[in-house]
Nucleic acid binder design. Sequence first.
DNA 1: CAAATCCCTACTAAACCAATAGGATTTATA
DNA 2: TATAAATCCTATTGGTTTAGTAGGGATTTG
Lengths: 134, 134
Amino acid sequence: MKLTTRSEYALLALVYLARNEGEGFISIDTIATAQGIPPKFLEQLMLALKRAHFLRSAKGQKGGYRLAKRPDQIPLADVIRLFDGALAPTESVSENFYESTPIEKEKKLTKVFKDIRDYVSNKLEKTTIADVIK
Amino acid sequence: MKLTTRSEYALLALVYLARNEGEGFISIDTIATAQGIPPKFLEQLMLALKRAHFLRSAKGQKGGYRLAKRPDQIPLADVIRLFDGALAPTESVSENFYESTPIEKEKKLTKVFKDIRDYVSNKLEKTTIADVIK
DNA sequence: CAAATCCCTACTAAACCAATAGGATTTATA
DNA sequence: TATAAATCCTATTGGTTTAGTAGGGATTTG
């Protein structure tokens, strides 16, 4: 029932970049210092975010990262899924990561977890980085 | 964002016992076979459930387990907390397991996770084993 | 006494997590 | 053109958690 620090750090980095849009490329060290994240750890996350097309980067001096999308086009769900996998509380209830478990036979129980998944999913899908910096 | 199999198995065991209330003590092997759970693994869970006063047990031949409370007095939340700890998606948002993280400064973000915690918490607190066997 | 059963602790293999290390490459600029 | 600042990329590490397995002890019933 927990988020990894990876997701939290990634969200914090995106929030920082969103707040400082228009200031060109921003370096990992700048973000790490501002948000209190271990820089080399953040580096890995930024790379992943870049590969998933949340970010654009520039190498070399004056390089760094900036958002590849508008903040209102980045739902929290997308970020969390990238680092933590499925949003659902159990496998049997996840749409994206289905796997068979004995719990499936308990329909009422499954329903409870489906409801939770739906709420969490909806909440995180409709909340974007833009909502968070307002 | 995930439940451990421990919690799932524990819930399945409680559901089984609730469905078969009034049949006296039921052995681990019976439950394990019925619900598809590794018996020696289930044994540990049953012991924990017993120590947490969800179950009563009887040793020896004809021994086994039965519920120590009425099914409607066992919220799913209690069971999940026993095996998985906090329900909240991030530490900074958990009432029972507070710990400081850099995310706290982002109030809007924290709010989203608080909302999720509240929903999940409320849902799991008010759903009991009795609801699940109906 | 034998069988069934819970009780309890220890162990293990694999995965995951958070973080660190360090070299390779690219770019701006002095 | 040398240097510094930055990303890029892979590997490694130490710790924890997870999902089980193993096995001996204690207790009760037939």
